[in-house]
Design a protein around this nucleic acid. Sequence first.
DNA 1: GTCAGCTCTGACCGATCGGTCAGCTACGGT
DNA 2: ACCGTAGCTGACCGATCGGTCAGAGCTGAC
Lengths: 182, 182
Amino acid sequence: MPRPPSAMRRQILDSALLLFSEHGFKGTSLHDIAVEAHCSKASLLYHFTGKDAILTELLTPPAESLSALSEELTALNGDQAVEAAVTGYVGLAMRYHLEVKIIFAELPDMLGHPVLAVIPRAVDQLADALGGRSAEPRARVMAQMVIGGVAVTVAADVDVDPGTMRAELVQGALRTLGHPTG
Amino acid sequence: MPRPPSAMRRQILDSALLLFSEHGFKGTSLHDIAVEAHCSKASLLYHFTGKDAILTELLTPPAESLSALSEELTALNGDQAVEAAVTGYVGLAMRYHLEVKIIFAELPDMLGHPVLAVIPRAVDQLADALGGRSAEPRARVMAQMVIGGVAVTVAADVDVDPGTMRAELVQGALRTLGHPTG
DNA sequence: GTCAGCTCTGACCGATCGGTCAGCTACGGT
DNA sequence: ACCGTAGCTGACCGATCGGTCAGAGCTGAC
């Protein structure tokens, strides 16, 4: 039964993303992925060096995007930084909502993963921008609340169209931070 | 090395709570708990019928508290409901922050657990109160954002004293929801 | 002294885990 | 027609998982 030759690799990644986001990384076995992708377990390990390699390939794009965002934010200050941080983070969270779910599902074990090693620093910079470069407890708590709130909301199954979701998340985050909504 | 007789059971629960909150339920083995509690794996299964029974005993108090809160909220409306929901939920989340971490770490698998079967309904009622009994997309998104934001912030290791944390979480949640802070 | 019972343990079990390996099949180049 | 190689697989491996079981050790009642 010849399948289109290069399709299997993509299919494995899609199946793994779905299952990881649904049952967690540790909660998903190679057997589960093989069944979902309609191939054998050995075939997974032909295309990928191991279970970890699948996760790495899935999480690399969002990790790099988050790093890039945090770099851009360092050049901004004040309201500009807050607004850019909010819209940028909301956009990333929505684009990679399944990956976000995987990452947040198994913190802090996930942060030990090499490909995610950049996250703590990126999140720190993000929180710094969200808090308006302030060291006040209020600012730090609110930054954490926004980061977590957006991540969980995006990972949850709220039946709202994406456009509304994005707009409400941005405005909600700005309100949380005590910023006047333009 | 004879230990005070009934101390072991409590010690097992404390060790399990710590490890579950740190590495997740699936990420913690009975061996890990036994090492942390300074006893044998077989001893765990003398005091508890299984790994699940340990989790059940840990999660029952917060689950019952959440149920009780959601019941109280049904009697309130408008601003009263919002304020009671915010302060009640923030208080619960802080009191049971380790348990919250465990629950949020492995959603939705955790929701399949019998002792947590009450949560979806309780959260729905909580979200309803937070959203001011409105069906608007904005209200539902904001309710989810508050629930998730508070949970993640409380589960994270933010170095802020509990009093400040509680006050900021309540005010932040009210701002997120667009409520005037008294 | 001795017996009953609570607490605790080492040894062991089947199941499942991630991963390895030899080999089958199909196909493109020559 | 032949062959090299990419794609894929069943069978198998050691490790670790949650859980079982017979019995050791201690303690209080009589």
